[in-house]
Structures are given as C-alpha cells and as structure tokens.
Design a protein around this nucleic acid. Sequence first.
RNA 1: CGGAGAGUAGUAUAGUGGUAGUAUACGUGCUUUGGGAGCACGCGGUCCGAGUUCGAUUCUCGGCUCUCCGACCA
Length: 404
Amino acid sequence: MKQSELFTKTLREAPKDEESKNASLLIRGGFIYKVMAGAYAFLPLGLRVFRKLEEIIREEMTSIGAEEILMTSLQPKANWETTGRWLDFDALFKIKSQISEIDYALAPTHEEELTPIAKKHIVSYRDLPKAVFQIQNKFRDEKRAKAGLLRGREFFMKDLYSFHADAADLDRYYDKVSKTYMKIWKRVGLGKITYFTWASGGTFSKYSHEFQTLSESGEDTIYVCEKCRVAVNEEIIAEQRECPICGGREFSKKKSIEVGNIFKLGVKFSKPFELRYKDKSGREIEVQMGCYGIGLNRVMGTIADTSNDEKGLIWPEEVAPYKFHLLEFKKGSAAKIYKRMLEDGLEVLYDDRDVSPGEKLADADLIGIPYRLIVSEKTGKKIELKKRTDKKTTLVNYEYLRKI
RNA sequence: CGGAGAGUAGUAUAGUGGUAGUAUACGUGCUUUGGGAGCACGCGGUCCGAGUUCGAUUCUCGGCUCUCCGACCA
C-alpha cells in the first residue's frame, strides 16, 4: 500500500476527548475512529490489525475442531424470556420495532440464539461432542463505557460454544480450550503478561476462568502466584487463599485487563431450551455446554496499551498492519523495491509521500510497523533496516528481507 | 445509575458582555530534504435551545455530547 493513497492521516496531537492510552494512540495513528463513547469504527490500518487477530483466533479454533458460524445481532424477545434474562441481564439493549411494536434484543451474547439452533442438530449421543464459534459484534448497554477499546457498548467477540454428552467430556474440552487460549495470547504478543486466572463462576458454576493481561490501565485486580504463573481474581481471593496449583500463599497484587474468559455452562441453557440427546439406551439427557469468549476490541486495545513507547505504537509482528514500512527520503527512490516486494508477496506500507524525512520517521514511529526500511539515496540501491525498537539501522540487501 | 469536570477551526489551545487570537493541519508559490523544514499569501471556528441584555462565545436555565472517579460488569 502506498501511504500517499492511504485513507487516513495521522494526528500530531492526542484528541482531548480520549484519555485512555490505547484509543489515544490508535486514533492518532489513524487506526480507529471514535463514533461515540464506547463505539469505535475500524479504519484501514486498524482493520488490518483486526483481521490478523481474527485470523489467528480462527486458526486456533479450527485446530481444536470448532466450526465457524455466524449468528444474528437481532434476537427475538421470546428466547430471552425462556432463560429469564430478558429482565435479568442488566446490559441488554432492547429495541422495539417502530412498525410492529415487536420487541427485540440486540445480542450481548449468543447462548439464547445458539441453543435452539443446536436443538435441530443434536439429538443423539452420536451427534456429540460438537463445537462451533463465531466472530461477531455484540452489544452491551454499559452504564459507563470507558478506557477506549477496553469497555465499549458495541464490540467484537469470538465466542466458542461446545456441546458434550457428559461433564467429563466438557472438562476435557475446557482444558483444551484453555491451552489453546494460551497459544493465542502468545501469538498476539501478550503471552508473557497474560495469566490464567481463577474467577467466580457467577450464576453458572463455582469457578470460571479468565485470562488477565497485566496492565496499569486495567480495571481488574488479580493476585498472581509467580511460581505457577497463574492468578486468582480479586472477587474470589477471599475464599481462595491458596494458589490452586501449588497451594502457595504468596501472591502479588496486579492490575489487569480481562482479555478472555471461559465458562462451564453445564445445563444452564440446555435445560430451559430442552436441548437433550438420546443415549445408547434411548434415555433423554440434557446436553452439557461450555462457552469461551475473547473480546477482539479488547485484545487490540490491550496490545496498544501494553506495547508502545513515547513515540507511538509497537505492534507485535503477527498482528501488525504491515510487516514492513518502506520509507524513501528521495522522491521515487524506493519505487522499484516496493514493486519487487509486492511481487514477492511481502506486506509493505510504502511511504511515497512528498514530505520531509522527519515527518516520515515520526509517523513510522507512531504507526508502529515492526520492520522499517529506509532508502535514502536517489539510486535506491542501499536499504537500511531498523526494527521499531532498535536505535540504529543496519544495511541489508534485498534478499535478506525475504528471510525475515 | 451517583459524583466531578469539560465543550472555541480538521486537531490542540488562548481570550473576551461589543472586530475571536495562536500553533498545527489544509490550499497556492518559492526555497528545502536523515527526526514532525523555512518564508509569503490564503481558507477555516465559539455544541443546541431558551432567558437576561441595546448587544451573549462569555452570564442564567434547560438539553445534548465527551472525559474522569465511584457503583455495576455473562
């Protein structure tokens, strides 16, 4: 992509209506646009990051046998009445048709939609286990949207739902998902600071688990067992005074962002919707369910929040909008290299704009693409390479780029 | 939802009961090119409504919006 043709511009100063570091940097870099409190549009660079995240998550979900579906945002009131959550779900957006006066829910989560769907397809023990996931926008009527991308009213989630014949099978799958989640954090660059965390199970079960990423701008507090690299959420530390793994009592208190959580739903939804299967003896048994979420906006915000310096963003390689940022200091001098990179399938943002070197460098710092290539001479022969976090550049030849 | 603060140009800011200023961005021209270049000229603004007043961007009231603190958070 030529930067001269990019839809967005960078902003020299942080917008004053946004105090959070994540949104402030992302807005300055032209990744997102704030539509209103708690609702952000993804612009070309931001969408590229989003798609990378999506693809990583998709690959990992597929690797544990989950199939992708896409459900609706508009949902019938009746389904929510079936579970009692039409009244009980605080953050449920309810809308009324101005024509028919029929009530709808704007989906904050999809158990109420998926369980009846599953009923059509899961009728026998032969149909189990099953797992489906989707990546979709969700709506939650948060009393207070805050912290930029971290708590919004409309956001994207990957939600995975699994269906099992019995609790033991659910347990096995739940563990598998946990491990896969840890792989995902690693791939998106949050591996070292994300902890598997014991949390209250809410209305579903005694415990659930969260994945908490250490960050000063987080709204959660966790207690980390440094020995086991696991944590417990503040809400259960009172009852769970020991590390669930090693039994240790040494915790350090940290602020964190919940980037994912997983629940064993049991029969919470299969019961009201009468999702049952017949076992070998012909007996009808309620299906065991699990659900597993990852907030994509939140993950993107968390990366922005935890991976930056005073000059701008520092994207982890797997989620960067482009792998290479090609800068030229003499008009047109990098055109040939750019063309060749495209032919070789290398992901590159080419700053072909007619602006000063200083401005290009400052923008490159802000946008945070991991590998910077600088062509300073008219001949275009010399390529300097500098990682976003490096202080100095090194001369490389073209062939080297393909090996990075 | 309770509390606090804030709305002035695309962005960031200053200021004022009487002509709204600066930086940056943007446009034109010339010069310039390894850390947000320089000069000149130009374009562009007081959130909405009501009230007080000869006159309101400024004061008062209402609304809308945003931010922060708290509560809440499948």
